[in-house]
């Protein structure tokens, strides 16, 4: 077990490949509102543009999510981070790591990239203050060797934000 942040270089399993192709088709027909997938030929890494919802603190701002899929997706959760600059948010660290339970312990194979995007947008939209988590500096320092957020033992927020 290495702790590099690079997504596992293992190729996607057959189940993962089939499922991602289907998700991609579904995305093209019916993309979640506020998101744009920058299409590349790399099925294993998606880069998705997020537009802050109108009427929220992040209106008119655009951020980028990077989603890396492991060999056994969707039985294993994808790794989801914001590319710099990450939005200022009480549950988003300056290195782009996101404190959101469905990305880790509460992941279930029945979830999809779309459902992740919707959760992240609702997390952004419900924010009432543009600030970093209180433990940002300590956490980011701990991650400086390129640790993946999936290796963090997350203590999740309550449901308020």
């Amino acid at each position: 077990m290495t702790s590099s942040s690079a997504p596992s270089r293992k190729a996607l399993s057959k189940i993962a490949t089939n499922r991602l192709q289907k998700e991609l088709v579904e995305w093209q027909v019916n993309p979640p509102a506020g998101f744009k997938h920058k299409v590349t030929d790399n099925l294993q890494r998606w880069v998705i543009e997020v537009n802050g919802a109108p009427g929220t603190l992040y209106a008119n701002e655009t951020y980028q999510l990077q989603v890396d899929f492991p060999e056994h997706y969707p039985m294993e959760a994808p790794q989801v981070i914001f590319l710099p600059p990450a939005p200022l948010h009480p549950h988003i660290y300056s290195n782009g790591h996101i404190c959101l339970d469905i990305l880790y312990d509460s992941w279930s194979p029945a979830m999809t990239v779309s459902s992740i995007c919707i959760s992240i947008l609702s997390m952004l939209s419900s924010s009432t203050a543009k600030q970093r988590p209180a433990d940002n500096d300590r956490y980011v320092k701990n991650c400086r060797n390129g640790r993946s957020p999936k290796e963090t033992r997350w203590w999740f927020h309550d449901d308020k934000v």
Partner: peptide, 12 residues
Amino acid sequence: PVEKNGGCNLVS
């Protein structure tokens, strides 16, 4: 022992 190394309240 479980380390708190990210996030806020609940740990599992």
